[in-house]
Amino acid sequence: MICMRMRGVMESTLVAAAMTGAGIGSAHAGLRYNMPEGVSEISRSVYSLHMAMFWVCVAIGALVFGAMIYSIVRFRKSAGAQPANFHENTAIELIWTAIPFAILVIMTIPAAGLLIKMDDTSQSDMTIKITGYQWKWHYDYLDQDVSFFSALAQDSNAARQLGAQIDLKSVDHYLLNVDHPVVVPVGKKIRFLITSNDVIHSWWVSDLAVKKDAIPGFINEFWTRIDVPGIYRGQCAELCGRDHGFMPIVVEAKTPEDYAAWLDAQHAAKAQQTAMVNGAALAAAR
C-alpha cells in the first residue's frame, strides 16, 4: 500500500522530529519509534493499513494546518489586515463534509477486508491454549500433552524490585524475558485459545499483530502464521493488578524440524519426570 520510497522518507522525518524535538543525541542507534512490520502476512497488512492512515492524516493535516498558519501569518491585525464579513457558504460546507466522508469510506474497505481475514481461524494446523494468571501465563499445547507456566525471568525479577542495586543493562532483555518461552513452528497456522484464571489479561505480541483479552469463564480465539524464525517479545496489555507490568510474553518461532525436536525433548523430559515420580513412589511404598 505504501511504497518503499515513502516509507524511507517517513522514517527519516520521524527520527529527525524525535531527535531534534528531544534535543537528545544519536546515542540510541536502534531507537524504535514506529509499529514493527512484524513477521506474518497479517502483521504486514496491519502495518500497511497503519501507515496508509498515517499518511491520510498527514495530508489532511498539511491542508488544515497550512490554511491556519497561512491565516495567522497573512491576516494579522498588526500587518494591517481588514476583516471580511462572510460567515457561511453552503457549497463549501457541503464539500468539506462530503470529501472526508468519501475518504473514510475508502479507508474502511481495506480495513474491513483485513478484519475478516484476521477473524478466520479455520484450517489451523495446531492449537495452543493460553491461560492468564496473576501474574504469569500458562501455555497448553492441545493434542501434544505439553503444558507449562511462563513467568518473568528470574534476573529481571530481581532487578525490578524497589531499590535493587542491579545494573539493568546487565540483565538479559530486562522485563521482556521469561523462564519458559512458548515455542511454535514457522509456516504453520497456529490457532490460539485464550482464557483467564482470575482477572482480565491481554496477550499481545506486536511482531505478530495479535492482541486478545483473556477473560475468566470465557474463551477467545485468534491465529497467526509466522514466516521468520526468531524470538518475538510482548507484554500483558490489560491492567491486571500489582504486577501487570511484569508478565511478559516470549514467542520462540522455530523451523518445523527444530520445533519437532523441541517437542520430543519436552515429551522425553516429561516421561523422565513421570518415571522419577513413580520410582520415588515405588521406593516410598517399599
Partner: peptide, 21 residues
C-alpha cells in the same frame, strides 16, 4: 470438536477432558 477444561483460582480441583478432541 476440541475439549478444553479450565478451573478458576478458587477451586482446587483436578479437571480435564477424557479425550482432547
Amino acid at each position: 470438536v476440541q475439549f478444553v477444561a479450565n478451573r478458576n483460582q478458587y477451586l482446587p480441583w483436578e479437571f480435564k477432558p477424557e479425550v482432547s478432541s
